[in-house]
């Protein structure tokens, strides 16, 4: 159980990281509207200004045009070999690499790897200077975003892997992750459950019923959900299956439970699914069937009694 939760977490974390890199914009990470300095200003003025703003670098602007960047290193150079009365233009780097504020921070990460600069001025679409960004700004923005997203995912995971699902009287507990549109692996969870029950020498009729329910629920997760979990438990008197997904939810439960009603696409129908029989099939083989759904997800919980069902088998 623990392993699967970790697996889910790692998968999600990877997604979160990628999402951060590609969705957070330079604008959100940069230091906006930094003070600037003119090339004719003295190094003393630049030093004071940088100290005031707590910056390790300052853009050098002539009228509205960015002409260079002055860094702490340039100030040190000036202190060692020159005078603080010298003009900024004598020490600044003129070789400026720019980032645009609409770029995803993946560009910024790339720039920090590619160039030796420790900061990049940021411009907007009109080529006006709007900010400056350091590796530290970048890290801070990413951490903030990752944290925000993980909190969001954590809520989902709690919903998915609720430990209270594990009933103390369960003889066996298994959780399986089912991914959206993963037709390649659809049916594997069902095979696994079937194998377990065969080894435990359950009657064929019971195995068939739980297999039908598991397979339909599995296919539903693949076809309709954004991915989710299938939880299987062997209880003293019954077998329990819980299917829980991350949405998008079933708009009309009554219809979803009606034979023949389907929202499946043509393509899914061409795969032999989407006949509108999934949930009704699950319900038919179950002794107890509960379903709830809203836009955060759907949960189906069914039990099949271990004895007294022989008449149901075919």
């Amino acid at each position: 159980m623990g392993n699967l939760n970790n697996l889910l977490f790692i998968n999600d974390f990877h997604e979160v990281l990628l999402e951060s890199i590609y969705t957070v914009r330079v604008r959100e990470a940069m230091f906006a509207n930094p003070l600037t300095i003119a090339p004719d200003d003295t190094m003393l003025k630049a030093k004071t200004r940088m100290k005031e703003q707590g910056m390790s670098g300052i853009p050098v602007v002539m009228k509205t045009r960015l002409v260079g960047v002055l860094s702490i290193n340039d100030i040190l150079e000036c202190l060692e070999h020159g005078s603080l009365d010298d003009p900024v233009s004598k020490y600044m780097s003129r070789d400026v690499v720019l980032l645009e504020e609409d770029m995803p921070i993946s560009f910024a990460i790339n720039y920090f790897n590619k160039y030796s600069f420790r900061r990049f001025p940021v411009i907007n679409k009109n080529k006006e200077l709007t900010g400056i960004i350091t590796a530290r700004d970048l890290t801070a923005a990413m951490l903030k975003n990752i944290n925000f997203q993980l909190q969001k995912y954590d809520k989902l995971n709690m919903r998915l892997g609720d430990p209270e699902e594990f009933l103390p009287e369960a003889e066996l507990f298994r959780q399986f992750i089912v991914h959206k549109y993963d037709f390649e692996n659809a049916g594997k969870v069902t095979s696994e459950i079937k194998k377990i029950l065969k080894e435990k020498r359950y009657p064929q009729s019971i195995i068939r019923r739980i297999s039908i329910a598991a397979y339909e629920l599995e296919i539903n997760l693949v076809v309709h959900s954004n991915g989710g979990l299938l939880i299987f438990q062997i209880l003293p008197d019954s077998l329990m299956l819980i299917s829980r997904d991350k949405g998008p939810g079933i708009p009309d439960l009554q219809k979803a439970l009606t034979d023949g009603f389907s929202t499946a696409s043509e393509w899914i129908r061409s795969q032999g699914f989407g006949a509108g029989m999934g949930l009704p099939n699950v319900k038919r083989v179950s002794n107890d069937f509960q379903i709830s759904s809203d836009n955060t997800g759907t949960e189906v919980k069914i039990t099949i009694n271990k004895i007294g069902n022989e008449d149901e088998s075919k």
């Binding site: 397979y215 339909e216 032999g272 699914f273 006949a275 029989m277 075919k314």
Partner: peptide
């Protein structure tokens, strides 16, 4: 329709279909 087959096909049987999948 696989759901229909699953629900109704008898065991030890032959399935006659065009669902080559």
């Amino acid at each position: 329709l696989l759901s229909d087959v699953m629900a109704n096909a008898p065991s030890d049987s032959i399935l006659i279909t065009i669902q080559a999948h």
